[in-house]
Amino acid sequence: MSDLTGVIHDIGYQRYTGPRLGRRYVFGSLYTHGLRTAFGLGRSAKAKIFPWFVLGIVALTGLILAAVRAQVGEVVVTYSSFADTMAWLVIFFVAVVAPELVSRDLRSGVLPLYFSRPLPRADYVYAKFAALATAVWLLLGGPQLLMFLVAAFSADSLKAVWTEVGDLVPGLIYAVLWATVFAGLGLLIASLTGKRAFAAGGIVAVFLMTTPIVGVFAVLPSQTLNDLALMFSPSSLVYGVGVWLFGSEGGDDVGSFGPLYAAVAVGLVAGCIALLMARYRKVASS
């Protein structure tokens, strides 16, 4: 029996000597990828149909409102109330985009790769949240900027332009509120299942099922409950904060509960993020 001999084969392995971009780069890449995914960029034509259809409707609405204002000389819809007008489109946009951002990752089983160093679970949550919130803000803020440009070029003095800026800023801030509340809630619901259809249906169901509760509390024979009614649905909660901060064209009022509405909105966003953190700790450990 001959002695066994071993052979070492040189397969050309070399250590990586390039730059180690680290955690910040990974976070930025995940955020950028999420934002591109929200609008179907870098994906098939089918993935672009719905987000760009919604974006087109919202932009066209803003353009029409600006054109009507330029013709009649009166504000038809203010910047702040523009988001309220587009509420249901925002709901369906979030219902489609949120599952694309997180449900696909659950279904494809790539989370262990994401959660390997140097990306902590918190960064994954924050990157996805920031991407969806930015997408919703662009959906609402972009048409407002279009409306502003039309109004600014139609203005007859620099003072009128500055007045228009003063009207625009609250609208953009209001769009941030819509974006953060809807992004947090949408991602939390979508993170519960890897099936995108179920996630989208769950998001829409939450808004549909909570809307009648607002109507019930609004007709009860108690002024306090009437003032608190808007708090029981995510979209009306955001509207209630807007009523407190910027007033209402329809005469709606939240009484002295404006700060409470704002606190509940902030708590809702913080709670959704905290639950997302807990959710992904559970996913990673299972």
Rank of each mutant, 00 (worst) to 15 (best):
T180N: 07
I57W: 09
F50D: 05
V75I: 07
G186K: 03
R121C: 13
W88C: 00
A135F: 07
D105N: 13
T224E: 14
Y280Q: 14
S233L: 02
Y31M: 00
G109P: 14
P112H: 14
V102S: 11
S108G: 08
V75D: 01
P170E: 10
L220R: 08
G215N: 08
F82V: 05
D3Q: 04
G184K: 13
M231R: 02
R23D: 07
A83W: 00
G194E: 05
W52V: 01
I49M: 12
F115E: 01
L106W: 12
A47M: 08
G6Q: 05
R107G: 13
Y31A: 06
L192A: 09
F148C: 08
G271V: 11
R15Q: 14
L168V: 06
A59W: 12
L185F: 15
H33S: 12
R69I: 00
G186H: 08
F153T: 12
I273T: 11
T17I: 00
I273K: 10
A218E: 05
P118I: 03
Y239H: 12
D123M: 11
A66H: 04
G166M: 00
A135L: 04
L35P: 07
F153I: 11
A66Y: 07
V102K: 05
E164I: 03
L111C: 01
F257H: 12
P51Q: 07
Q144I: 05
W52N: 10
A263H: 03
R43V: 00
G184V: 03
V206Y: 09
V102L: 11
E249H: 09
A197H: 08
I273H: 10
L65M: 06
L63R: 09
F115C: 00
L172V: 01
F198N: 03
V125L: 12
I203Q: 03
V58Y: 00
Y114L: 13
A47N: 14
A87M: 08
T32C: 04
Y16V: 05
Y31T: 02
T32Y: 01
L89R: 05
V206G: 04
A95Q: 01
V219K: 14
L55F: 15
V243G: 06
F27Q: 02
S157G: 13
L106G: 06
G166S: 14
T224Y: 11
R69Q: 12
L111E: 13
L276Q: 15
Y261F: 15
T134P: 07
R117M: 10
V76Q: 06
L260Y: 07
L119H: 13
A133L: 06
T193D: 02
A183G: 14
A151L: 00
A152M: 02
F27S: 02
V169D: 06
S285W: 15
T134W: 00
V75S: 07
L111W: 15
M86A: 04
Q14P: 02
Y31D: 07
V54Y: 13
D84E: 15
Q223G: 11
S248G: 07
R15L: 12
Y126C: 06
F92T: 09
S222T: 14
D253N: 14
P120Y: 12
G201F: 07
V150R: 13
R117S: 14
P234H: 01
V176T: 08
K128D: 11
P212F: 02
S29M: 06
F53I: 04
L101N: 06
A274C: 14
